[in-house]
Design a protein around this nucleic acid. Structure first.
Length: 311
RNA sequence: CGCGGGGUAGAGCAGUCUGGUAGCUCGUCGGGCUCAUAACCCGGAGGUCAUGUGGUUCAAAUCCCAUCCCCGCAA
């Protein structure tokens, strides 16, 4: 099948590679423009661009898909289908109309739940025990198109958003191949979504990264998981801003929320009277390390207030 | 030229401003205590102080210069 691929981050790379391995002819990869990123503002290629270049697939990085010249370029590829995975831009109707088999999106949730930019992180953040992948026929709305196929995936209690991302990327790639096969065979007309059941998963913001010890331990644990690997939960320990990468919900503890209940393992009192064990942390300017290592150089005692804030 | 923190024992840190004996917590090894222990006590080993036949100095982890590497913020 002739395919134009649109995607940007790592999540999309698996799907691109799966298409190539399955023998589909990906004649063009459309991805976001290179941007100065990271320390020093160096220009970095989006992961999909790197993967496409490595595979010898031509890359296009338009500023907007509304540009008729861009649309013409895509049309000129005469794709049977356009595959979209976390591209990050709205597709105008003129583009949606190009491929005869439609624009097929690989979305990281079981639609109509978690429409939007951050379905994977939001699912973990909300403590969902199940997520999945939906392939759908794109329309003008935000993740509102007809459902083609779905595949569910359990979320274990300690799984991070990053781990779920990896898993879903694999599942999504496989589901995509099946979707294309069946769609090509004419067996997948698509099922409309029930808008009444729709929920939304907006992008994560920095403000959501701060841990509020007045909240229940389980909720904070979910927050830590959902924000890993980015932007990562934050708090203040021993006067230093630190990121919290991994935690474990512990048992009942005594003390005011935000105080240290124990130092081995490092446990903080939460709002519901249970403890949250901090397992892996990273101080500003330092590397990720086990909490025990942090304690070697930054002594904390039981009963001490962890954050300077009062809750 | 976006802003900033850092590289000292296996790990995490102090010491750098005000140059002069290599320090702390943990780990590790040995011994002791104990019914026993991840607990406690005593003792030991372990460091080219990122790199540089660099500069200054009587003397550099410390001041100056250059290079490499790690990380936080912002975008």
């Amino acid at each position: 099948m002739r395919i134009v691929f649109m995607g940007t981050p790592d999540f999309a790379v698996r799907s691109l590679q799966a298409l190539l391995q399955a023998g589909h002819r990906v004649t063009l990869a459309v991805t976001q423009p290179d941007k100065p990123k990271g320390r020093g503002n160096k220009v970095q290629f989006p992961p999909v661009k790197q993967a496409a270049l490595a595979a010898g697939v031509p890359v296009m990085q338009p500023l907007t898909l509304k540009d008729p010249a861009v649309q013409d370029a895509i049309r000129a590829e005469q794709p049977d289908a356009i595959v979209v995975a976390a591209y990050g831009r709205i597709l105008p109707q003129a583009v949606l109309d190009i491929p005869p088999l439609g624009c097929i999106n690989v979305h990281g949730s079981l639609l109509p739940r978690y429409r939007g930019a951050a379905p994977v992180q939001r699912a973990v953040l909300n403590g969902e025990t199940q997520s999945g992948i939906t392939t759908m026929l794109m329309d003008k709305g935000m993740d509102t198109g007809a459902i083609l196929l779905t595949a569910a995936c359990p979320i274990p209690p300690d799984m991070t958003a990053g781990e779920l991302f990896d898993k879903l990327a694999d599942i999504g790639a496989q589901l995509l191949l099946r979707t294309l096969d069946e769609r090509q065979a004419g067996r997948l007309p698509g099922t409309p979504q029930d808008d009444a059941l729709a929920t939304y998963a907006p992008m994560l913001t920095k403000q959501e990264a701060e841990l509020n010890w007045a909240l229940p331990a389980q909720q904070l644990h979910n927050q830590v998981r959902g924000l890993n690997p980015a932007p990562v939960a934050r708090t203040v320990m021993a006067g230093l801003p630190v990121k919290i990468y991994r935690t474990a919900a512990g048992g009942p503890v005594k003390g005011r929320p935000g105080t240290v209940a124990s130092t081995s393992p490092l446990t903080v009192v939460c709002g519901d009277g249970t403890g949250l064990e901090l397992l892996e942390v990273q101080p500003d300017g330092g590397k990720r390390m086990p909490a025990a290592a942090f304690l070697c150089g930054h002594p904390l005692k039981a009963g001490q207030i962890l954050a300077e804030k009062e809750f």
